[in-house]
Amino acid sequence: MKKLLLALLLSLSLLSTAQEFKTPVDYLTYINKEQGIISRSTWKYTSAVAHSKSARRIDNTRKQLIKTIQTAKKKIGDIKNGYNGDVEYQNQVIQYFDFCEKNLNEEYDKIINMQEVAEQSYDAMEAYLLARDLVNEKLDSENEKASAAFNAFALKYNIKISEGDSELGKKIKISNEVFDYHTVLYLVFFKVNFTDASLAKAVQKKDMAAIEQNANALLQYANEGLEKIKTIAPYNKDVSLITATKKVLEYYKKEAETHVPKIVSFYMFNDKFENTKKTIESKSQKDRTKEEIDNYNDMVKQVNKEIDTYNKANNLDFQDKQNAINNWNTVAENFISKHVPVD
């Protein structure tokens, strides 16, 4: 469940490579150079999120990105009076960098805190993903303001610019698309996976009402998920994540329809056996009828068979569940690694 927190690159590249502030082109080139440095640092962070399993490496690249922003912001802030007193573009870029730095610090901490509790409920997971996406939307909005200020300055001073995304810009755009696609299917997976965890707790407590409630919810969510993935197109002809999600949904559907009734049946028979056992043990041997003894002995034989059958079914179900979940996690990880560009 990962996504790029920044999209820093202004996609317009200058045609001139002048280095002094004698012209408006010199001024834009200087600022654009600092933005390019930030863009490369941003990409390192994106790549670490997508391809690294090391939390330390990811956090180190985040901190390095913050330092890069701070350095660039100071250099641009040190420009006196912008270009001949025109500071609108300069101020907009600084405002954008301020916003990025704040989000990498304050908002990052908030999101990490939300992530820690996200798996406690489906609503918490949705809230976490929504908060993460809102941060990205705000960053995109600020980026658009900076881009608009760039274009306005270029137009004002008749500077010709080339339209189009840079290579880094394209990589960042692709990365966002991949993470967005992954998130949609992850939520489908998480909903049934979380409901199954609640079902498992109910089974452990032998809470028949909770078992029935969670089993019904699991079946409902599995069916809803199977319908939803029919509307999701493959990503760049890659159906792997859709297929893995379908498999895990089919497993949970089978569990709710087939395995849970066996659990309920076993618990009901076991309760009946325990009640019979208590009844016969409450009587002295002379008060026990032959019919009661024969019935109890038959139930002892049956309960032993039921326990053996139940344990085998549980082991098989557990293995099927682990296979489905592990497969989804592996496919999801490979999906991100495959489609997020490498350095």
Rank of each mutant, 00 (worst) to 15 (best):
S147L: 15
L249T: 07
N236D: 08
N216I: 04
K301E: 12
K321G: 01
V331G: 01
D287M: 03
E257K: 07
K102W: 08
E291Q: 11
Y157D: 11
E119W: 02
K262T: 04
N143M: 10
S141C: 07
A152R: 09
I66M: 13
N315K: 10
N295Y: 13
A148I: 10
D207K: 11
M114S: 07
I37S: 08
G77E: 12
E292L: 12
S11P: 06
T330L: 04
A72Y: 05
D109N: 14
D59V: 13
T279S: 14
V331L: 00
E212F: 05
N270I: 03
S121K: 10
I293M: 15
S54G: 03
L249R: 13
L187S: 10
Q64Y: 04
Y157K: 11
P234F: 11
I174K: 15
E167T: 02
F153A: 02
E212Y: 06
Y27C: 08
D123I: 12
K228C: 08
F194E: 13
I263T: 11
Y83N: 04
G164V: 01
F266K: 01
E212N: 06
A124E: 14
H51Y: 00
K312R: 03
S13D: 09
A48E: 07
K262G: 07
I76C: 08
T46Q: 09
A256C: 09
K321L: 03
K253A: 03
N143L: 10
T231N: 01
Y83C: 03
D271A: 02
N60W: 07
Q115S: 13
F153I: 06
I211D: 02
Y181C: 02
A313W: 08
A197F: 06
K3T: 01
L249Q: 12
F273L: 07
N275Q: 15
L168P: 02
Y45S: 10
E333A: 02
E101V: 10
T61F: 08
E101I: 13
T23P: 05
I111C: 06
K156T: 04
R288K: 13
L139T: 13
D294Q: 13
I172S: 07
K75I: 05
K63N: 15
V264G: 05
L249K: 11
N158I: 09
I38P: 05
D26W: 03
K338A: 07
T183K: 06
V248W: 02
E137Y: 00
L129I: 02
L8H: 02
S16T: 11
E281M: 09
K230Q: 12
L8E: 07
F150S: 05
A124M: 06
I112T: 14
A154C: 12
T29A: 11
K53Y: 00
A149N: 08
K254S: 08
A131Y: 04
I79C: 06
S265W: 04
A209Q: 13
Q90G: 07
G225H: 05
